[in-house]
Design a binder for these strands. Structure first.
Lengths: 341, 341
DNA sequence: GCCCCTTTGATGTGCGCCCCTCTTTCCGAA
DNA sequence: TTCGGAAAGAGGGGCGCACATCAAAGGGGC
């Protein structure tokens, strides 16, 4: 049996090809009754437009843009690299992908960058901020017909089509569970280092972490959060201070970047083996120390998956194609020494 | 700038469209010197054929076949379901996917089923067996021009194009690490239940598990392997026996299916909270007991990912298209209560 | 110089759909 | 009855490539 084509639809609907085309592409000038007939024929035949013929005929390229935080940590660099790789793969599918950098913490700058994309692109993937201007900029883009997905960090009450990233509260809970079980029944203090309490994902991770520590591990006491600004040096300072002030520190959770600082502090203190250290994001560095044993577990979100997923979602939106939710859900990966890739 | 097309290549190579076509599709009757010229033009222009135009013009459907074990456990059922879902998604990309069932343990039957596919399909994904007949059947298929990928379970020395599945030795090591750390320093026995020691993946998991337990956890003693035949009842018997014979049992690792049996035995013994239980494969059942706490961790391979990856690899092979290794690597997922989807 | 064979060119058709233009038909209002 | 606009039909060109056919040009052997 050959494919069912527009011809077949036209025939069974008893109309001409032109009319079917008008219906399919929502062109005006078709009687409601006729529209109905055509749609019935489509349903009856189970007609699905040939993606290849459609894209070929339409001849238009899709133009997407990724807006990423500038000059930042290993994870973001990995993400950008994966975006570029993905761009390479979809280039021969008539998809062009651009990348812009914007300062992470500057909501206004991010909003401005987004506004500047109006009219120039079909879709945008943005590492967002929970900031009113950003939300408004996203909503403006959506209103102007641009598809927007948020990446890694969401803009909760905006009209973005999808959020491509993990549930950070659950990530925090996961870290706590692992840490709690890895300390093996010992009692003591647990330290948490965040990048900045202005970052929504860091806050959420902290909340999840707190929840589980206080509920499930009565022997552990969570110390007040320290801010490390995602910077190795600063993180090392606060980690060293934590280690010095608390001889009974049994666990450390670094919510953000700057794992190098923690490793350095642990090494300097000579307590790397005694303190359970849970980190985020699998990088060459964290991978190395996971294997060495300084880091006990890494909570990860796969930047390659995120880049591809965002791209797929943007394409699907353009083509009004269905989405495989299972494929697009970003997992909270747990890596220990034995299952790192 | 518009796409570079065959026209452009022909022009810069100084030959006709027909000749470029001959080179591209490896048709005979072109002088080596000319081939060279054309390929240079292609390289120079960075020409890449338009996937959509190609597929449309070729007009041929790809026909793939999945050969799965029959009447079996929840994981295999999930895998099959995901294969069917994937089939639905790629149906409008001119890809037809068929599914056949074969008895898992019967190498000859599997080999026969594979032989029967010759000439009927372009590609095959098979849950293989490490059996000489199977290996030969795979090699025959490959020799006859059919692309073969193995799925979940490999046929190591065959000529299959890819193996879509996890490293089972690493999975075993991962289970051991988690179990060892979760027992929190207690000393005692550890039990391992496998489906059958004839299954390669089960053996590999066992080997990995043994390695890590003996190397990293001197306080733990691994008991001799028990076979549960992936069947709830039988698994319950052996688990109950283990629990009864060893009051100091602190951990259980179920390498195969039949988690229901272990849960039942643990519940009956009243030691569900004391014995750390590591299982394989996230199913509705294991998910429930992970949340309840009977199961402490689940090692998983994502059947949806495997179905999609196998399909993508088969398509890529047909189109001689590049492969994104990062996308196709199947991860060893670790799920604990807090990061289950 | 003739013939044959290899190499190349020229050209056409079709894949399934989009998009545009130009009729033709039909229905209701004036 | 006439007229106008809405609804529908008809047709064509094009997207970039695959595939087939036929003709022309080139080169070597005799």
């Amino acid at each position: 049996m050959a494919r069912t084509t527009l011809q077949d639809v036209a025939k069974t609907a008893g109309v001409s090809l032109a009319t079917v085309d008008r219906v399919l592409n929502r062109r005006p000038g078709v009687h409601a009754r006729t529209v109905e007939r055509v749609q019935q024929a489509i349903a009856q035949l189970g007609y699905r437009p040939d993606r290849f013929a459609t894209r070929l005929a339409r001849g238009r390229d899709y133009h997407f843009h990724f807006v990423l935080p500038s000059g930042s940590n290993a994870f973001m660099q990995a993400l950008e690299e994966r975006v570029r790789v993905t761009a390479g793969y979809v280039a021969d599918e008539r998809v062009r992908i651009g990348v812009t950098h914007v300062d992470v913490f500057d909501g206004e700058a991010l909003a401005a960058a987004l506004e500047g994309l109006q009219g120039a692109v079909d879709g945008v993937a943005v590492v967002a901020l929970d900031h009113p201007s950003v939300r408004e900029a996203i909503d403006d883009l959506v209103a102007s017909g641009v598809t927007v997905v948020t990446l890694v960090s969401d803009a909760p009450r905006s009209r973005r089509a999808h959020y491509v990233g993990i549930d950070n509260t659950a990530a925090g809970r996961t870290a706590a569970s692992l840490l709690g079980r890895f300390v093996a029944g010992r009692k003591g203090k647990v330290g948490l280092v965040a990048g900045s309490m202005a970052l929504r994902d860091h806050i959420e991770r902290q909340i999840g972490f707190e929840q589980v520590i206080s509920r499930d591990f009565p022997g552990l006491t969570l110390l007040p959060v320290r801010e490390g600004r995602d910077d190795d040096e600063r993180v090392e300072e606060v980690a060293s201070a934590l280690l010095a002030e608390h001889p009974d520190l049994v666990g450390l959770y670094n919510v953000g970047a700057g794992n190098g600082g923690i490793v350095a502090a642990l090494d300097a203190s000579g307590r790397a083996r005694d303190v359970v250290f849970i980190a985020h994001e699998l990088t060459p560095f964290s991978r190395r120390h996971l294997i060495r044993g300084t880091i006990d577990a890494v909570i990860n979100q796969d930047p390659g998956h995120e880049a591809r997923s965002a791209t797929r979602l943007l394409i699907a939106e353009q083509e009004k194609a269905p989405i495989d939710a299972g494929q697009e859900r970003i997992r909270i990966d747990i890596f220990i020494r034995d299952n790192v890739p």
